[in-house]
Computed example of a mutant assay.
Amino acid sequence: MKVGFIGTGSMGSILIEALIQSGALEPEQVTAINRTPQKAQLLAAQYEGLHVASTIAEVIEHSHIVFLCIKPMEYKKVVDEIAQCDRPDLILVSITSPVLIEHLESQLKCKIAKIIPSITNYVWSGASIGMYGSRIQTEDRLLLEQLMMSISRPIQISEEYTRITSDLCSCGPAFISFFLEKWVEAAVEVTGIDKKEATRLACEMVHGTGKLLTEGGFTPEQLKQRVAVPGGITAEALRLLQNQLEGVFHQLIQVTHAKYEEDLEKVHHVFYGQEVNRPQY
């Protein structure tokens, strides 16, 4: 199996490195291109055998599966280039949430899928969200899931839930890291604890909590109840969080969805030259 990558920025390079380091792909199976060639060449220098292409057509020619790891507003130009060398057996995988499967299927004749990865996939953990177009056959879906299973837990969803699942799986690490960062900062300021020590403790806590929730059989509600003894310190602190964070997660979802709809409208206009009806949240 030959896999191509158009774009080797943050997420593109994470996918390439994770798939190679996990053993899912050998460097010789990977062809990559980036608009800044030096970025792709750095990966080739790190993983001997990885091929750096000079054109998108070259990536398509050498690949059975191609991941599109580019920004939303770059898609139309790249898709126009792909259309010149498109073929029905090619599996094209978009990793960008505001670009819809219908956008790509309307322009190309190949098989279209959308997979939203997470930075957690870099350590072969977390979920990857899969959505599949009308031309994807069962064997195609299984092939993609087998590939992603080496670095994640593939979960298939309906495309209408792209944004909220991306919030939870892809944006979530940043949200959790922000919470930890502020908590550690406060711990240092109030108590004088060494920042590195506090950060290590907090990170180990998150690691262990994740294992309890994924391997230990706990739901978030069960784990909260297990730790927060009635009348105890944790329960008192949770009461504070409940009061102070009232409504903030609804606002968070509204913000991410509003930005998504703004980006979706821009992409839709680039592909079709018209506005898209935006749902209200």
Score class of each variant (00 low, 15 high):
Leu15Phe: 05
Tyr132Leu: 03
Leu245Glu: 00
Gly210Ile: 03
Phe175Gly: 13
Ala258Met: 04
Thr199Gly: 02
Ile65Arg: 12
Leu223Phe: 13
Leu212Ile: 05
Ile33Glu: 03
Ile116Val: 15
Glu26Tyr: 01
Gln225Phe: 07
Phe175Gln: 07
His62Thr: 14
Thr162Glu: 08
Arg163Met: 11
Gly9Ala: 02
Asp167Pro: 13
Gly210Met: 02
Leu19Val: 01
Val255Trp: 09
Cys110Leu: 10
Gly133Met: 05
Gln242Met: 06
Pro220Ser: 08
Ile233Gly: 00
Cys69Tyr: 00
Val229Gln: 08
His269Pro: 06
Gln244Ser: 09
Ala45Gln: 15
Arg226Leu: 04
Val93Gly: 00
Tyr272Gly: 07
Gly126Glu: 06
Ser125Gly: 07
Ile60Asn: 03
Gly172Lys: 11
Met149Pro: 04
Ile136Arg: 06
Val255Phe: 13
Gly172Thr: 08
Glu81His: 04
Ile155Glu: 15
Ala186Gly: 10
Gln251Thr: 08
Ala237Lys: 08
Leu15Thr: 01
Glu61Ile: 05
Lys195Asp: 01
Thr256Ile: 13
Val79Cys: 10
Leu15Gln: 03
Val59Asp: 05
Glu261Gln: 15
Arg163Tyr: 01
Ser158Asn: 14
Ile65Ala: 13
Glu139Arg: 14
Lys266Ser: 02
Tyr75Gln: 04
Ala237Ser: 11
Pro154Asp: 01
Val66Leu: 15
Tyr281Val: 14
Val3Ile: 14
Leu252Cys: 13
Arg87Ala: 07
His207Gly: 08
Ala235Asp: 03
Met149Phe: 06
Leu180Glu: 01
Tyr75Val: 13
Ser63Thr: 11
Ala83Trp: 00
Ala32Lys: 06
His257Gly: 14
Leu241Trp: 14
Gln38Phe: 09
Lys76Asp: 03
Gln274His: 09
Glu189Phe: 06
Tyr122Val: 00
Cys203Val: 15
Thr8Ile: 02
Pro37Asn: 10
Ile101Trp: 02
